[in-house]
Structures are given as structure tokens and as C-alpha cells.
């Protein structure tokens, strides 16, 4: 059993795969600093069992972090029929890019679709702002 499940605020290890979303793409073109882009980008989709283990529900905020970054985003159930515990999905965005490793093995290609991170409840903290 995952040790995290015994903690008061269980932390779940995930592998994050990024993807494209038409609504997010449209929102970026209209206003990349706007609320719609933030709402369609700063989110993570997880297996319902992972949400249950973290004691969070759809729309809650979670902290997603690794040694490269630490962000607060909204969590959703993926809705995929096939269970995918431990695999999470994020739209490709400046938020997901805050977690991408700088290790490229000299190839020039970062692992945009292969991010290891932990997720835990943000206990109501606000979504990370888009700034540099």
C-alpha cells in the first residue's frame, strides 16, 4: 500500500502526460492572460480513485510539485473508462511547463509529456497566477 495514504494529507505520486485542448487553444488566442485561459489550462485530470485517496473532489485545488516547480491547479476526474491510477493529464500550458525537467540528455527535446510529480490537496489555496 502507498505510504502516502497513511498521512493526514495524502500525497500521491503521479506521472503527468500533457495534451492539447481545443477550448484552451481558443482561449489562449483570445487572451492568454485571461480567466478562461487560466481555467482551461491550470488543471489536472486524475483517476477517480486518486481523488478519493487525496480526499479531494472535482473543482478543488491541489498542489502539484516536483524538484522543478510547485503549482496550484484545479483537479478534475478524467472521465476515462479505463482506470489510470497514478497517471494524470494536464493541458500543455505554462503551468505544466513549470514542472518539466531540465534534463534533456543533450537532445534539445524536454520531456513535456513525461512529468513525475506529487499531488496533494491545496486546502483551498488559489490557482497559481500566470507570471514570470
Amino acid at each position: 500500500m502507498d505510504f502516502g495514504s497513511f498521512l493526514a494529507a495524502p500525497e500521491i505520486k503521479v506521472k503527468i502526460v500533457t495534451y492539447r485542448d481545443i477550448f484552451q487553444n481558443k482561449a489562449m488566442i483570445e487572451d492568454r492572460f485571461g480567466e478562461e485561459y487560466k481555467n482551461t489550462s491550470a488543471l489536472i485530470k486524475m483517476d477517480s480513485a486518486d481523488l478519493k485517496q487525496m480526499s479531494v473532489k472535482k473543482g478543488d485545488t491541489v498542489i502539484v510539485k516536483n524538484s522543478f516547480g510547485n503549482i496550484v491547479v484545479k483537479v478534475e476526474e478524467s472521465g476515462y473508462e479505463t482506470p489510470h491510477k497514478g497517471i494524470a493529464y494536464m493541458p500543455n500550458s505554462p503551468w505544466s511547463n513549470m514542472l518539466v525537467s531540465d534534463e534533456t540528455n543533450g537532445t534539445g527535446v524536454p520531456k513535456f509529456k513525461d512529468i513525475e510529480a506529487t499531488v496533494t490537496s491545496a486546502k483551498g489555496a488559489k490557482v497559481t497566477d500566470l507570471e514570470f
Binding site: R32, F68, G69, S93, P94, N97, M98, V100, S101, D102, T104, P110, F112, F132
Partner: peptide, 8 residues
């Protein structure tokens, strides 16, 4: 600044 990893 948006499309590349922030670590880089």
C-alpha cells in the same frame, strides 16, 4: 517563456 520548461 510560456511554451518551454521554466527550468530551462
Amino acid at each position: 517563456l510560456a511554451s518551454l520548461p521554466r527550468s530551462i
